[in-house]
């Protein structure tokens, strides 16, 4: 598996450059053109990243997620899994790296093959950082009113989360 994933990026490079050479593209010049545009793209999203990462950092340090966990514990108890699963879902909507930290906590507490460990593994694989993606992408189009995006994104995330819980239970 790791062999395949180590292979895939160099293979994409090889394919793109090879295809370009065969197609008589001035590959290096077009690479430079694209790369220059890439610099501009990132510069445009720097302010968004600062705003979001500070927001997530403040929220994490404030102990909000611990409070949320305590608050959700009774609900989670009824459903039969630890409250960390619910806060994992909430954290994943803001930050992928913070969510990874939580997953690793769950792995060390219960083991990756346990029921909570499997839920966490599946849930991380089928959800995205909703708010991060929305703010970065909409900024690129300079859009402020996002219409039905939030509803659809939350619905998809919720569907994935529910599916993770049932799939993990089904695997025993």
């Amino acid at each position: 598996m790791t062999y395949v994933s180590n292979f895939i990026i160099p293979a994409v490079f090889f394919l793109v450059v090879g295809y370009g050479l065969i197609g008589r593209v001035k590959i290096y010049e077009s690479f430079l053109k694209g790369a220059a545009e890439g610099l501009k793209v990132v510069l445009d999203i720097v302010p968004t990243l600062i705003g979001l990462i500070v927001g997530v950092g403040v929220l994490r340090a404030s102990g909000f997620f611990d409070l949320l966990e305590n608050f959700l514990a009774p609900v989670a108890k009824i459903c039969g899994f630890p409250a960390q699963i619910l806060s994992l879902l909430a954290v994943k909507m803001f930050s992928s790296s913070a969510a990874t930290g939580l997953v690793l906590d769950i792995f060390s507490a219960y083991g990756p093959d346990s029921y909570p460990g499997m839920i966490a593994s599946i849930m991380m694989s089928c959800t995205e950082t909703v708010f991060y993606t929305m703010s970065v992408y909409f900024l690129a189009a300079k859009v402020t009113k996002t219409r039905f995006t939030m509803a659809g994104a939350l619905l998809a995330t919720f569907a994935g989360a529910v599916a993770s819980i049932f799939l993990a239970a089904g695997m025993g």
Binding site: V16, G20, I22, F31, A35, G38, V41, V42, L49
Partner: peptide, 24 residues
């Protein structure tokens, strides 16, 4: 994060430009 990102995004956008001009 942005510093890492600048490099990697520029790299991929460069690759994408080639892929586009080559018709890929």
């Amino acid at each position: 994060l942005c510093i890492t990102m600048v490099g990697v995004v520029a790299l991929w956008m460069g690759m994408m430009q080639i892929a586009q001009e080559a018709g890929l």
